[in-house]
Every structure is written in structure tokens, then in C-alpha cells.
Design a binder for these strands. Sequence first.
RNA 1: CCGGGCAUAGCACAGCCAGGCAGUGCGCCUGUUUUGGGUACAGGAGGUCGCAGGUUCGAAUCCUGCUGCCCGGACCA
Length: 439
Amino acid sequence: MRLSAYFLPTLKENPSEAQIVSHRLMLRAGMIRQTGAGIYAWLPLGQRVLKRIERIVREEQDASGAQELLMPTIQPAELWRESGRYDDYGKEMLRIRDRHDREMLYGPTNEEMITDIFKNSCKSYRDLPKNLYHIQWKFRDEIRPRFGVMRGREFLMKDAYSFDLDAAGARRAYQKMFLAYLRTFARLGLKAIPMRAESGAIGGNLSHEFIILAETGESGVFCDRTWLDLDVMAEAPGFDDDLERFFARATGIYAATDEKHDAADCPIPADRLVSARGIEVGHIFYFGTKYSKPLGAVVAGPDGEPVAVEMGSYGIGVSRLAGAIIEASHDEAGIIWPDSVAPFQVGLINLKSGDAACDRVAAEVYGDLRRAGVEVLYDDRAERPGVKFADMDLIGVPWQVLVGPRGVKSGVVELKRRATGERAELSRDSALAKLTGPA
RNA sequence: CCGGGCAUAGCACAGCCAGGCAGUGCGCCUGUUUUGGGUACAGGAGGUCGCAGGUUCGAAUCCUGCUGCCCGGACCA
């Protein structure tokens, strides 16, 4: 992509409405624009990041055996009356009426709808187990949205729903998602700690929140110091292996949200306890027959007797993750994207646009990278080098390739790693090899 | 929802107290200059001063009502 033609409205100054760093940087880097309290438009750069995050989430869901579908954003109120949540959800649910005066709602979650879809087609224990998910926009009418996309009213969420014949099966489904979540967050370049959590309005009695530690986190959390240096994925099993041991070990190291933490009854000594703030990026629940019973999701068991299916639900805040990753990875100059979610892999800077030799070399490097399948943002604007450096640092592209008069003369380009600031002068071929070779 | 604050050009803000030509910096456009970390100079474009009403010869400025947004809290997968 040539930057001269790209819609990338970066800002030099901080918009006054943005207080926390991820919100400021997302606005300044031209990723998002606010259209109302807690409601954002995603501009091309932000959309690219969202798609990258979504893809990793999708790949890990698929790898775990879950199947993707897509449910609507608008739901009939009737479904929610059956579960009793139409009243329970309160003002956080956005309620609307269609032209026939039918009561509808903009879905805050999809337990009722998926259970309804499931029950209409799955009648036998032979149809189990199933895990169905989608990645869809949700709306929760938060009293007080804040922190940009991290606490928006409209947000993109992956939600999965598991159906099993018995509690043992549901436990395995829960553990598979537990593993899928750890794999997902690791790939996103995040250290997410699974913490015992309240199950809230979803209901149920087994629940973990996946938390990233960050000063700007919304909730207080507590964990064993061991977590700070632990690479929990080092000994992670495959999805088809026995997950019980891994699950026991990962959940055996103390970690709890403040609702679940009791200082008077804490299993670890004070000098090992870390008190911090965290951003919730995922939440998983086992809730048994809470929805299957009222909604009639019943299958015939092996003995022919009806059995209400055992369910769980599993959420990942996809749009929130864009903000959370920035909270965890930025510096004074701007965003530092992990390679896995970067909107472009390489930012190519022509330091002297208009100079025939620089234009030629930059265009050739651009072509070479594109042919090699690298997503590259080529800054071909007639701007000062300083402006280009500042913009490229701000938007956080992991690698920068600098083409300037000096290097062109001696036949080299400069390669800069955004995260470390490390630079090296290389021949064009070795730079290309480095950027297209194995990571 | 409670409490506090803000609303003037794309962005950040001054002007309001004490009514009298709509301003500054950045950004944007044109030209010159400069060319390895947001360059310099000159010229230019850009405004329903959030909306509605009131007071006044005259309102960005004073008064009333409304709306939107932000912050703290409570709430919240």
C-alpha cells in the first residue's frame, strides 16, 4: 500500500477526550474515530488489526474443534423471556421495536439464541458433543463507557457455546477452551493469566477470566508471583491429549479477581502474593443446564431417556484486545505491534521522495517485498524524513526499511526494528531475505 | 445513575469575568527553501462560537431550557 493513497489520518496532538494511552494512540494512529459514547468507527489501519486478531482467534477455535457460524445482532425479546433474562438484564440491554411494534433487542450475548438453534436440530446424544462459535458485534448499554475500545458499548466478541451429554464431557469442553485461550493469547503476544472469577449474569459455578496485567486495568486482581515469570505454554498439551493434568497445574497456581479473592483466606503467603490491576480479555463459564432446561434443549440419551444438555460459554473480547495489546506494548513514540497482529509487516520509508535514484530503489524494494507476499506500507509522500519516521513509529509497524540518498549511493538499505530501535545497514538482498525468511 | 467539568476552524486552545470586526499554535492549500527524527519564510483557504429561546441598539460573552462529550464513583461478561 502506498501511503500517499492510503486513508491514514494521523494526529500530532492528543485529542482531549482520550485519557489512557491505548485510546490516545488508536486515535492518533488513525485506527479509530469516535462516533458516540462508547461507539467507534474502525478506519483502515484499525480494521486491519481487528482482522489480524480475529484470524488468530478463529484459527485456535477451529483447532480446538469448535465450528464457526454467524448469528444476527438483533434478537427477538421472546427468546429472552423464555430464559428469564429479559428482565434480569436490566437497562444494559438495548431494547428496540420494529415497525410491527414487536419487541427486539440488540444482542449483548447469545446463549438463548444458540440454545434455540441447537435444540431444533440436535435430538440425540449422538449429536454431541458440539462447540459452536461466532465472531460478531454486540451491544451493552454501559452506564459509563470509557477507555476507548476497551470499554465500549458496541464491541466485537468471539463467543463459543459448548453442548455435552454430561458434566464430564462439559468439563473436557471447558478445558479445551481453556487451552485454546492460552494458545490464542500467547500468539497475540500477550501474557494472559487465567483467574478464578465470578460468573455474573451468565450464571454457573466454574469460571475463569483471562487477565492481562496493566496499570490501566479496570479490575483489581491477585496472583502468585510465580505467574510473572511462568511460560505456561511451555508444557502445553495438544487438544487431543489428556488435558486434566495441564488444567490442574495451570489452575493450581493461585490467581483470582478481587471478587473471588479473600485476604483472610488466601492460600499463599503474603510475600508471594502480587496485587495488581488487570484487563479482562477472555472469560469462560461452565453453567450446566441453566439454559438448556428452561429453553428445552433436551436430547435422547443412550437409554432413550431425555437429558438436558450440559453447556458452557466462552468469550473473547476481540475489539477490546486491540486496545489491550497497545496497553501492553507501546513506548513514547507510539504503538509497538507484535508481529502477529501488526497491520503491516514492513514500513518502507523513502527518505527523499522526488529524488530519481531514491524513488527507483524504493519502488523496486516495494515490488520485491510485495511479490514475496509481505504486507508493506510504502511511505512515498513528499514529506520530510522526520515526519515519516514519526508516523511510522506511531503506527507501530514492526520492521522499517529506510531508503535514502546515502544508502542508495553505497547500495544498501537500512533495516530498523521498531520494538528495540535496533538498526542495521544491509544489502537489498539480505534485507529482503531477512524480511521474507523464517521468523 | 450520583457528583464534577467541558462544548469557539481538522486538532489543541485563548477570547467570556467587564457585551462592540472571530483569534493563536499545529495541521491543510500555493510558492520558495530545506532534505536522515514532526525544517524555515511568504501568501492563502477554512467558523451556524453545540442547539433553542430570552435580555439588549448590539450576544461567543449575560439569563433560561435542552443536547452531546469527558472525568471520579457506583455498576459491569
